[in-house]
Design a binder for these strands. Structure first.
Lengths: 253, 253
DNA sequence: TTCAATTCAATCAAAATCAATCATAAAACG
DNA sequence: CGTTTTATGATTGATTTTGATTGAATTGAA
């Protein structure tokens, strides 16, 4: 009996959806193939951000926010975001001080951060801070006025506060990335905060999926060379154009 | 392997949710594994802040926030809390700067605040800040380290920040109110914050339902005469005893 | 207080699982 | 047809998890 790779992986996800957790041995029996193959499938699915591997099997991803519909998934490029988020978290090392922007791109990083030991995360996102505390990560929330639409803390106070800190790494989302106009966002206040953070960071990463590349938003944060771009863009032509100016990390496959 | 680590730990938490306390021997039998393994699981879960280990087993975490599951005193006091909350909100006037403590008592005030015009609310409660922003109230969130159990921001930073502010009114919850020992809470850090707030406020209100009266918790916030007590106590004898020392507002019927 | 009985933390060896590699066989391609 | 690519299964040594054992700490009763 021949079973295609894709069928197997779908079956795994199906099983996960039902029980929330699957054992390696169960899958071997269910799919009637070798342990190696199941391992490879789980590895691939994890890279795609569709599950989290644990010792002896895998568990479904708990996003805390309710699952988006299929259509929504496609339009919002959830898969790409997951890959980017995973790659971003991989950069973090033990004992570091990290800054996380408010926003969905950075929020996607949180599920992958559960295993990080003794890191301190500073953020201006209320939602993020709450979730980070939930997984027991030392969290520092920047003080200031709360913007009710995005649940982010912005304003002059924030910039002043940020200046008292020093980060090993900062991760930020942006709405536009362009070879000439650099990293841009719609809100000048948020841009100012991001700029301040960048100044205080050893390394600054900007998270942007395909849809953001070659786009320009209103307020400029920084030039391309000021930070490292993390993206899921596959088109090598586009990538090359950006690589000539700034550093890029590609979340592949 | 028979059962995955994650499954075991979930089962433990499940059991805890039901009975509030679990014995080590019970778990060994229930999970069908060695004592060592159960110990390790409990250790891990404690590190994650999901339970508290005690000699011979573990108990559920008593979160100041939500969860009226095991310790069922919440349902009885919901009515009282509502009355107290309503009375508290009635004290607020237009154009004032208000401080709201993190906690369930103060959280109950929010629904009644929707009609307030041009007030600024300062808080150290992440949950509260989010809800306040939702009903379009100008909200300022104090910065600092986030305590994962109560979702409140506490610590030395908070006290320093508070000193830069001046409030027209401050509303705070307490766990104990006693004629002799004054207002008390379990966490010394939180007590320090409340004390600092009280110093910066024209008027300080303490919200406490019947069950808190004549109780004493660990850390003292202030003497009775330092603030106005808002309670739903009906017993006139008890009320008189407190009235001799401090000011009281009664939320009736 | 002292003592006995549990329970705990730390350690170690055995078992299970993992990541990496290699060889085979099927599929794809020119 | 031969070559390359790809997916699979088996094997290896490394890592993780587990259960048992030890002495130390805690508890409850005398």
């Amino acid at each position: 009996m021949k079973v295609l790779t894709e069928e197997r992986q779908n079956a795994i996800l199906e099983q996960l959806k039902k029980s929330g957790i699957v054992k390696l041995q169960e899958l071997v029996q269910l799919l009637d193939c070798s342990i190696s193959t199941v391992r490879r499938d789980l590895q691939e699915l994890e890279d795609q951000g569709k599950l989290v591997r644990i010792h002896g099997g895998a568990k479904a991803i708990t996003t805390l926010q309710n699952e988006p519909g299929v259509l929504e998934k496609a339009s919002k490029n959830v898969q790409g975001k997951q890959k980017i988020a995973k790659l971003a978290v991989d950069q973090i090392e033990a004992d570091e001080v990290i800054y996380l922007d408010a926003g969905t791109s950075t929020q996607a990083m949180i599920p992958y951060m559960a295993n990080l030991r003794s890191v301190l995360v500073v953020t201006n996102g209320v939602q993020l801070a709450s979730q980070l505390a939930d997984i027991n990560i030392k969290t520092y929330l920047v003080g200031g006025e709360l913007k009710n639409t995005t649940k982010a803390i912005v304003g002059a106070d924030v910039v002043e506060t940020i200046k008292n800190f020093r980060f090993n790494r900062a991760f930020m989302g942006v709405n536009g990335v362009h070879p000439k106009f650099g990293f841009t966002t719609p809100d000048p206040n948020e841009a100012a905060v991001k700029r301040a953070v960048l100044m205080q960071s050893e390394v600054g990463y900007f998270l942007a999926d395909t849809s953001k590349l070659n786009e320009v938003s209103f307020a400029k944060v920084a030039d391309l060379e000021a930070g490292i771009l993390i993206t899921d863009e596959q088109d090598s032509e586009v990538l090359q154009r950006f690589e000539q100016i700034g550093e890029i990390m590609e979340a592949e496959k």
